[in-house]
Nucleic acid binder design. Structure first.
Lengths: 339, 339
DNA sequence: CTGAAAGCGCTTACAG
DNA sequence: CTGAAAGCGCTTACAG
């Protein structure tokens, strides 16, 4: 099949190519009748403007980039990214933007990808994930003046636009809930310590534990994988004064932690209460289903995409707050059997 | 920052734009010395050719499309897709191709996306997932003459190129293994029945069970979600002559099935053996870890991408076989306690 | 081996 | 309200 061009539409409509362009893009310059006729013909012959030609003349790529900087083995397991992507994508495709995805090994590679995308004019802007403390990507992006929205914060995002949600409040709520149930020895299995949101959660955990006088509270760091999450849990549960409740920084580690507890003969929730972050179907897959902190991740992604499109459109690069995570109590939390 | 163009490189090198193009694309037409000088300058000023300009003049998009036709809620949980994407992406980016991703609601929407991509010249080819029996996408793609590789089969892929793996052999092997352990009442929780690979597995299951005289073997269909997988398992385990082994068509349903068994007071593997497809970290997250049929999914994705690039490059649209899934025995399978 | 030029398919001022 | 034309930044025959 021969792809129709704007010239084909113009010929059949008996107008100039310019008129077709105006009609298709909703610009003034054609009468309503002509516009209707042109649109009908375009639909009839199945015309879609060449993204390349449009990009070249309009200096806009019609695409948004997302670089995922996680090892392949971690990428697949966490439902978080797919959920985020599906939300991002829904918003973008509704506005006729394409999503360009690239998996990168580290921040150097990621920055190189941003430079290339910028030089190639391949994307109009990017979404940045997994914000770290002292994140070099921020300065690189600012230097390129490539429109960007950082998913994370608050803080550490420089002059870039960002979308954040209040993890500190959510974590505090979870700890207060566990304390209300009667727990005193609460442990937290954190994610990678140099991620900004890990830092925020760690600080919030320390603060609420101090306020409530939980002197035995402890955070140990892990890497989001089931292997590490299980290993760390095994160590925690082997200690003399083992915790009666553990809060995990993601769903995968929480599920692994549950397995370890059961393998060690502990009953969840009687002997051990478990709280997961990133509420996902994974949390409902296991028995007992896990109490979890979560929110609507596809909506978060859609929100981020909307914000990015606004920045690309010239809106100021603001910091926007998304909804806070909510605690959903399920079968994995209860008053401790032996206090 | 101003983006450098080919003219900037040409000016600094004191040559024509054509010479720069030849040098950058490894074409003959420039001396080795000139080529080296041009490349050095391009690197120095950070020049990347505009993807739009290149696409427009070379009539090649430099991108490959992947439309994912699954409801958002299912998408996130199965590690399969992210693993596949990471493999696809690794291969593509090594060849400087971009991956354009779109989530669609159904096949009509997916076909519409293919038409649009084709009309917009946005992608040079597409990867097709979740092949169904009588799949309308095949004819649509053939009509558009859009290069494509179908991930699935064998069979049902029309004239399109495809990459398939022998699920029948793998399933047969799994059943023989369970029978060797002493199982006679084996059930299978299948995926969506109109998917081609479900059909293949169902036929293979029926064939091996008949050959081995397993008259009580049964396949029940599900939808890959944990909810449904759990529900179906509950029904199977409540029947008078409950199965002593269950084979699940994906990892998520297998994990859900394990939970249900444990919730019903059954011990895995003594009372019930479980085999999962799509071996993934999920299978090692639970206790006992699940015996699984699996293979290297990122490698599968990379293979598919390589095949597509070959087809885009003009190679004939062949059917290529990937490695067969392997059975990895873990703690969820054992001889049945009561035969 | 190199340069000048046409052309890819759009968008967008600029005349009429 | 409409048409003719320039231009986006490349690639690629075509001369030299």
């Amino acid at each position: 099949m021969k792809r129709p061009t704007i010239a084909d539409v113009a010929r059949r409509a008996g107008v100039s190519k310019g008129a077709v362009s105006y009609a298709l893009n909703g610009q003034p310059g054609v009468s309503a009748a002509t516009r209707a006729r042109i649109l009908a013909i375009a639909t009839e012959i199945g015309f879609s403007p060449s993204s390349a030609a449009r990009a070249l003349s309009a200096a806009t790529a019609g695409a948004v980039g997302l670089a995922l900087c996680r090892p392949a083995r971690t990428l697949g397991v966490e439902p978080f990214f797919m959920a985020l992507i599906s939300g991002v994508e829904a918003e973008l495709s509704a506005r006729s933007y394409a999503l360009t995805l690239q998996v990168v090994a580290d921040h150097d590679a990621e920055i190189a990808v941003y430079r290339r995308w910028w030089g190639e004019r391949r994307v109009d802007g990017v979404l940045v994930c997994d914000l770290r403390t002292d994140d070099r990507r921020i300065a690189a992006l600012q230097q390129l003046q490539l429109p960007a929205v950082v998913i994370g914060g608050p803080g550490g995002t420089g002059e870039l636009a960002s979308l954040w949600s209040d993890d500190a409040v959510a974590l505090t709520e979870a700890v207060e809930y566990l304390v209300a149930l009667g727990h005193r020895r609460i442990a937290r299995v954190g994610g990678l310590p140099d991620l900004r949101h890990t830092e925020i959660r760690t600080d919030a955990f320390a603060a609420v534990c101090q306020r409530l006088g939980l002197t035995e509270a402890v955070t140990v760091f892990s890497d989001y994988t089931g292997e590490e999450g299980g290993r760390v849990t095994r160590r925690l549960l082997s200690s003399a004064a083992r915790p009666t409740a553990v809060i995990y920084d993601n769903d995968v580690m929480a599920v692994a932690g549950l397995s370890v507890a059961q393998e060690m003969g502990l009953t969840v929730p009687d002997d051990l209460s478990i709280v997961a972050w990133d509420d996902s179907p994974l949390c409902r897959l296991v028995h007992p289903p896990l109490t979890a902190l979560g929110r609507d991740i596809p909506a978060y992604g859609a929100h981020a995409a909307r914000h990015l499109l606004a920045v690309i459109g010239g809106q100021p690069a603001t910091r926007v707050q998304d909804e806070s995570p909510q605690l959903t109590p399920r079968g994995s939390t209860a008053p401790p059997r032996d206090k």
